[in-house]
Amino acid sequence: MSGSADEFSQFYREQLEPILRSLEAERQQATQRFGQITLLSVVVGGLLTLLLAAAEVGLLAFLPLGGALLVILVAYGVLASEWSRQFKGRVLTRLVQFVSAELEYQPDRYISEEEFRESLLFQRDPDRYRGEDLIEGRVGQTTLRLSEVHAEYEIEHYDSKGNRYTTWHTLFRGLFIVADFNKHFHGITLVLPDVEQSLLGWFGQTLQGLSAKLGMQPGELVKLEDPDFERAFKVYSTDQIEARYILTPSLMERILHFRERTQSEIRLAFIASRLYVAIPTTHNYFEAPSLFAPVGELLKPETIGKYLHELQFALAVVDELNLNTRIWTKR
């Protein structure tokens, strides 16, 4: 994985800057076109409205103005999505390749709902599932796939008259990572945020053990010896020894550190030699700058630097969890 400051500035000068210049020109063209369309629609719509008003047709007179608004909205939608497509396709694709030549970026694809369900990280299945910005490939010896994911569930309600209505709630929103783990294992081990024990102490732990016995979580509760880790997480596994084979004292420390770095309630699942990581965040990663960004904003190195940081953050899991150390039988 490359990414030193020198390498980046060279890459920026040689490859990105020419593209960014032509993109900036295109962006300005697009905003101009949007300005023209807006002006034209307002003028035409306004004139027609005035004419109709003169003909005394009542509220119907506002119809052309409404039509003009619709045209403006559609024009914005088309131009903004084309801009985003161009930016992601031409800039982010190259940036991902710069970070590692073995990675590929596909803005419209995402981690499948099936994979999300397979992770067993969330206790219910999503009713609505979306995502974008898939990054796929290898970092060192570790194969991984990651994307933004937004999973929601639906709750039915009935009002006092017995009418049914539904509300949507977020199950998970953030970065979802599926990576090849550096050890072989067969069972399921889940590392989930610990809420019960931090609230209820010893009794909370008893409840956690019970929830495994009742089949709400796979396997049984695993009590680990690192007190900081135990405070932050609860662990369930189908195999007590395998859970400890995966969660070595050093990996527990690394997971704690990773949690601090992400500053969020991360969840990890270890299933059949694969690692699933869910990092909840409300930040929209790898999003194109606004179509109406100030002139020249795009050409500032900080603008692109931000994307590099986002990318390094998303891929940090490999180094943070030491996935490239392959000293065991798995190569």
Partner: peptide
Amino acid sequence: LQASLNEIEEQLAAARRAYNAAVTD
């Protein structure tokens, strides 16, 4: 052989920790 030995030592450490956890319980 070295990788296999590392693997066994890692599994051994895990088994010891599992044993200690079971004994504590």
